[in-house]
Structure formats: structure tokens, C-alpha cells
Design a protein around this nucleic acid. Structure first.
Lengths: 114, 114
DNA sequence: CAAGAATGATACGGGCCCGTAACAATCAAT
DNA sequence: ATTGATTGTTACGGGCCCGTATCATTCTTG
């Protein structure tokens, strides 16, 4: 069932949702940070720094820094991989899941009025 | 005609679009910057710093800095109001319009496959 | 075991952004 | 004309982020 938003509908939805997120006082995440966060929560684990960097087409320090910041916000967490201790496994958190739950609700609600 | 995206559809759409924007090398705008940009392009002028600050629920320096950055990217421009020279009128640019055109196309295309 | 590859983090100089407070310019009102 | 309000910008110390290069740790291979 194709959705096929028109350009005007697309921009209005993005505007309404972004504005609602800003006004609600949620963290002011960048496109990169949102990409990382949603990749972690929507795609199947494991998620390593290298994988995320490759998926987004950015360097590894970009991922490390984004994980630092979102880690302080408790939206994600990190753990060493015991199978290969060079790897870092990026994991979900309760706060991150709740954040995305609110986020999805905001999108769903505002999509009803475009 | 209500759209009513489910939570899973909402997050998948946001993820796909954010990821496409990052991978395409578009500027890594924050939620605040996107809010400002889309407000300028979707709502009727005039747009002043004060109005934007009130609309987003943030301080005026936040708007000034975002306009500085997006001005360097040539996504918006500023002009003094001749009727009241205290005001600054935020205006659209060709580059900004093209950017949002690509953005809307990305959303529209990816919405077709959720 | 030694040499090489791979992973993620760190250092660096530079720039953007934060919130708060002060600021110059301009208008409005007495 | 002087006072007061309003607008947008700037200053400040502090923090995050950039891209690039380097680093320590760990695994893999000969």
C-alpha cells in the first residue's frame, strides 16, 4: 500500500513534527544523530561503530562523538563485545525507547492532520 | 483524508529520510534549524527574529545563530524592514528553495515504500 | 611468537552552539 | 526632546562537533 506523500504534504509533516519536538523541549538532535539513533532501534543488532559509520557514509569519529553525546542523554549505551574485544556494541536504553515512543506518537498524531 | 501513520511506519519513514539526507551529503541540520527553515518557507511572510523565537519557544539568540549558519549555507537571507528598521525580515533564497525541493522529493519517494 | 590488520578512541585547531546578560539602533509616548 | 520600550545582535565562558591523523587494544596470520 504505497503512501506517496505530495511534496507539500511531505514538508508540512516534517515541519509540524520538527516544530513539535522543539517546542516540547526534547534534545535538539541533528540529522546524523537521528539517523544513528533510529538505525540502532529499528535494525537488528549487533551495531558496531564501524557498521554505523559505513551505513551513514561518515567517519568513525563522527559515530564515536554522536554516541558520546547520546550516551550522556542516556538514549544509547555501549558495551564491549566479548567475542571480539575490539568491537563496541551499541545498545538500546529505556530512556531511548521512551524517547522514540514519544517521537513516533508525535509523527502519527500530526500525520492525521496533513 | 487522515493519514494516520502507525508508530512503526512513523519511525521507519523518519529513519529512511534522515539516512538518505545524511548519505547524500546535505547539510547536517538540527531539529531547530529545520523548524526555522520550514517555517520560513511554508508560512506566510513576514518572518522576524522575534516571531520565530516565539513560534519555536526559544530565545532570540538561538534564532540569530541559526540564521547566521543557514545564511552561510545560503538557505535563507536577511533584510532590514524599511517600515520599522528595528525588524529583520527573514527571506527565502534560490538555494533554500532547491534544498527543500530535494528534501520533499526524498520524503515523497521514501514514503512510497514504508 | 612476531608482524600485520582491524577496531574504536583520542588529540588537534578551528568553528558552531548553548544560556545569560549586556548592547546599539530604532520606535513610541509623553 | 527625553524617557522608556522593543528589536536584533554581540560578548562571555563552556561545551559539542568538524576532519584528519594518531593511538592503544585486540585479533589474525605467518
Amino acid at each position: 500500500m504505497p503512501l506517496a506523500l505530495t511534496p507539500a504534504q511531505s514538508l508540512k509533516l516534517w515541519h509540524d513534527v520538527s516544530l513539535a519536538m522543539v517546542r516540547s523541549g526534547e534534545p535538539d538532535l541533528s540529522l546524523r544523530q537521528v539517523s544513528i539513533l533510529l538505525t540502532i532501534y529499528l535494525e537488528a543488532p549487533p551495531h558496531t561503530v564501524r557498521d554505523l559509520a559505513r551505513k551513514l557514509g561518515v567517519s568513525k569519529p563522527v559515530i564515536t562523538r554522536a554516541l558520546d553525546t547520546m550516551g550522556k542523554l542516556e538514549l544509547v549505551s555501549r558495551r564491549r563485545d566479548d567475542k571480539d574485544r575490539r568491537n563496541v556494541l551499541v545498545q538500546r536504553t529505556v530512556k531511548g525507547a521512551l524517547f522514540l515512543e514519544r517521537f513516533a506518537d508525535t509523527i502519527g498524531n500530526l500525520s492525521r492532520s496533513i
